[in-house]
């Protein structure tokens, strides 16, 4: 399951050129290929996941996202997508800028560290939060740059990135009325659609 898939699909034009950063086993790209006929490319580090992508007939290149996107030209893609990976990138700020250099738009999903359950674990119980979305203990987690929706909004403002659209949802992918009223407290995952300029 891809959290926020419906939202992502709605933001993508048919036959768009799509780059999926950290594409995993290629679920998102193969859905988008089947439903939107996108011209897709995935980047993934794990060869075993790349093999799954090849089974699906996808194009996927083994690349460590922390080495950047220098091998891509400006404006090569219509959309660059990164789902549930930004928090594991060494420099999310540089990555966001790179995404909007090689793509005209970017779609990013990430977990909200300020979700009320995390706040209880940290603020009341006094432990680093562990949840279905963030299952790793603090000393052994790929998620080294956790942020809240508010933090992310400030970063976008600072970098001059335009927030075209945003949706928040629960881990199971459902929108809730509480989440739409107080996203930074009740939204578990955010899906951002970003563009260049403020």
């Amino acid at each position: 399951m891809i959290i926020g898939y419906d939202r992502i699909e709605g933001w993508i034009q048919p036959h768009a050129k799509v780059l999926d950063l950290g594409c995993g086993e290629g679920l998102l790209l193969s859905e988008l290929s089947a439903r939107k006929h996108v011209d897709g490319l995935g980047l993934e580090l794990d060869p075993q996941k790349i093999i799954k992508c090849l089974t699906r007939g996808l194009s996927v290149v083994q690349q460590d996202l922390n080495t950047g996107l220098k091998n891509f030209n400006d404006d090569q893609f219509d959309v660059v997508i990164m789902t549930q990976t930004l928090q594991a990138i060494r420099r999310p700020d540089i990555m966001l800028q790179e995404m909007l250099r090689v793509g005209r738009e970017a779609i990013v999903t990430f977990p909200n560290f300020a979700h009320w359950q995390n706040r209880i674990q940290l603020g009341i119980v006094g432990h680093m939060p562990v949840s279905a979305l963030l299952p790793n203990p603090w000393y052994n987690t790929p998620n080294i740059h956790l942020s809240t929706f508010k933090d992310f909004d400030s970063l976008c403002r600072e970098l001059g990135i335009r927030k075209i659209d945003r949706d928040t949802m629960s881990f199971s992918g459902h929108a809730s009325w509480l989440g739409s009223l107080w996203p930074n407290l009740f939204g578990e995952v955010a899906v951002y659609r970003l563009g260049r300029g403020t």
């Binding site: 050129k17 011209d39 490319l41 060869p47 790349i50 992508c53 090849l54 996808l58 194009s59 996927v60 290149v61 083994q62 091998n71 891509f72 030209n73 090569q76």
Partner: peptide
């Protein structure tokens, strides 16, 4: 691989 990406040709790559 990079040239193929820039040429927008379908390419898969693994460094084994």
């Amino acid at each position: 691989v990079d040239a193929l990406i820039k040429a927008r040709r379908p390419v898969s790559y693994v460094r084994l």
